[in-house]
Amino acid sequence: MKITLRIWRQKNASAPGGFDEFPMDHISEDMSFLEVLDQVNEKLITDGKEPVAFDHDCREGICGTCSMMIDGTAHGPDKGVTACQTHMRTFADNSIITVEPWRAKAFPLIKDLVVDRSAFDRIIQAGGFVSVNTGGTPDANAIPISKVDADAAMDAAACIGCGACVAACKNGSPMLFVSAKVGQLARLPQGKTERYARVLNMVEAMEKEGFGSCTNTNSCEAVCPKEISASFIGALNREYFIATLKGKPVESAAGGG
């Protein structure tokens, strides 16, 4: 098939950017989107030009590194997949495909399609630790967990931190990401020990990064490659509200320990 890629090119954060068009011929419909970008780059390198910078790593949809808006949709039009798992058969022959980086103040652009997502790392770091027992392998099912909670925690844990939720949200809100991370640990006995301090610290870290607020438009869950439900956002709001009522835990000097 024949397609034209319209890719955002920008040398660095301060340089002006713009779209470059790359007409591509002999594209197999079984190719992944990133493989087409590879072909664009091989051609650019052969011609002695600067290749398009884009983030990628595992290319099997589990690492959350690839990150691009394909025709206005985060990770492309295919539902429940990352850009690397989007195949060319999703697109019509002779189509013009616009490729842009994630756009958010909290995700500053580095080059072309690459943005800095360390804001997510700082939110995770603010979440702190989880108390678990070390030592020998524990017996299976030694800690009772209901099937419902285990399933919900697993759904939340599917988050790969790609940032598509922020990219798709009209407000650039990371609430789906934060709610997945908080929701995962708040449901499991292992994560409950630090439960309330964790949500307060993670929300505080989130607010510092310059993201927008959640207006419940559900764009995030529509583009999430792991199809994480926006209902987790409701659970995060509840968790944060309860944690605020309980107050931040203060370590007592007189406490036994």
Binding site: G72, R103, K170, N171, G212, S219
Partner: peptide, 29 residues
């Protein structure tokens, strides 16, 4: 306050901002 926060969260917009808010209803936008 929230609208100002949201407007500041995306200083550089998308090529087609209407299209990028995937599945968001007109009322919500």
């Amino acid at each position: 306050k929230l609208t100002a926060m949201n407007a500041a969260a995306r200083p550089v917009g998308y090529n087609d901002p209407g299209k990028s808010a995937t599945k968001a209803t007109l009322a919500s936008r």
